[in-house]
């Protein structure tokens, strides 16, 4: 598959054409000045200068709340007390403008939800319905550290298509068959010329140099898990933490969930919801025993899971893509880059 191009002023036309075959989502500014992915309507325009969305796009495959099953508790119903799988929407969806780090997060999570022993039916269905059209980052943010987390501002490995914003033109690089198919559907077939390709290479190289934040992760794999667990720095790291859970909800790779039943009169749903290891209830036994009653244990769990347990279990790098959300939005300034530095020392 070869690189394609369109003029920038044709880009919205391309997106609207896509709507014939895909649900199209783009980053759009919300009232409070934050970007989030929004269904493309008539009014929305694509802002090439956006940095990243506040919420990560993980919710496209792992919704914050998702109905798994339905049931009736009405004894006169033939199937009372028997669960039925709830209907779920897995129609083709294109996420346009996703950042390469967030696309990599799908690969990180996938190792957990689609493993040789068990396939999570909802995750796999949703994930398969997505086509990820990434926008390379010409101007990385000050909190970005993707190049330390196995990625880069123009990293292709989690994407189906990569877009290069090159002034008057967009270079469109199909990466997977799925991406190629989308471009065919939308009649994107003008080959990119060599000068545009060269410009793309230059923008990419310049952007990588702009990432000012670097941290080494090379020793994490060989470190002894028990020694890291018992390290003396956890009290200092956790000292200011208020266990608010913001980091886990904004993180593109935090996947832990809860399952709850909700009943309205005699009809009920079994629902899964995002959960957070920051909360004591996460591990509280019915007996009252709690293996992680102290906040320092919960803070340690989050970092150990991402930076050591995941690394050991899947041999798939760290479970952090360097998006910088937790650094930016932590109300007490806990910085995962500093934690990585301490763990990797």
């Amino acid at each position: 598959m070869t690189d394609k191009m369109i003029k920038k002023d044709q880009f919205m036309g391309f997106l609207h054409k896509l709507k014939n075959d895909y649900n199209v989502f783009i980053p759009a500014k919300e009232d409070d000045n934050f970007y989030n992915f929004t269904a493309l309507g008539e009014k929305e325009t694509f802002d090439f200068d956006y940095k990243n969305t506040r919420l990560s796009p993980k919710s496209f495959a792992l919704p914050q709340s998702e109905k798994m099953f339905e049931f009736s508790l009405n004894k006169s119903d033939k199937d009372a007390n028997i669960l039925r799988e709830a209907a779920s929407d897995s129609s083709n969806t294109a996420i346009v403008g996703i950042r390469p780090c967030d696309a990599n997060a799908f690969k990180v999570i996938n190792a957990n939800f689609d493993n040789p022993e068990f396939r999570d039916p909802w995750w796999t269905k949703h994930r398969d319905s997505l086509t990820l059209i990434g926008l390379g980052c010409n101007e990385p943010d000050s909190t970005c550290f993707c190049t330390s987390a196995g990625g880069g501002p123009f990293d292709e490995k989690g994407l189906d298509i990569l877009l290069f914003d090159l002034d008057e033109h967009i270079l469109i690089r199909p990466i997977t068959k799925k991406g190629g198919k989308l471009l065919e559907t939308a009649d994107i077939n003008q080959e990119a010329d060599s000068s545009l390709k060269q410009k793309a290479d230059e923008v990419k190289a310049a952007s990588e140099k702009k990432i000012s934040s670097h941290v080494a992760t090379d020793k994490l794999k060989s470190k002894n898990a028990l020694e890291l667990f018992n390290a003396s720095f956890w009290d200092d790291i956790a000292f200011s933490c208020i266990n608010c859970g913001t980091c886990t909800f904004l993180c593109p790779t935090c996947w832990c969930f809860d399952i709850q039943d909700e009943v309205n009169y005699d009809q009920g749903d079994r629902i899964r919801n995002w959960d957070s290891c920051m909360f004591p209830l996460f591990t509280l036994h019915a007996s009252g025993h709690n293996p992680r009653p102290e906040k320092v244990q919960r803070v340690r769990q989050r970092f150990m899971h991402k930076l050591k347990y995941y690394v050991d279990k899947y041999d798939n790098g760290i479970a952090c893509v360097g998006c910088g959300r937790c650094v930016k939005y932590c109300p007490v300034n806990i910085d995962i880059r500093e934690v990585i530095r301490l763990m990797n020392e």
Binding site: A225, Y309, D312
Partner: peptide, 19 residues
């Protein structure tokens, strides 16, 4: 051992001891 669990199949993330 006992632990608070939800999924029972190693996916939901809460019953870990180390990895």
């Amino acid at each position: 051992l006992e632990m608070r669990m939800k999924c029972g199949i190693g996916i939901c993330g809460r019953c870990n001891i180390g990895d």
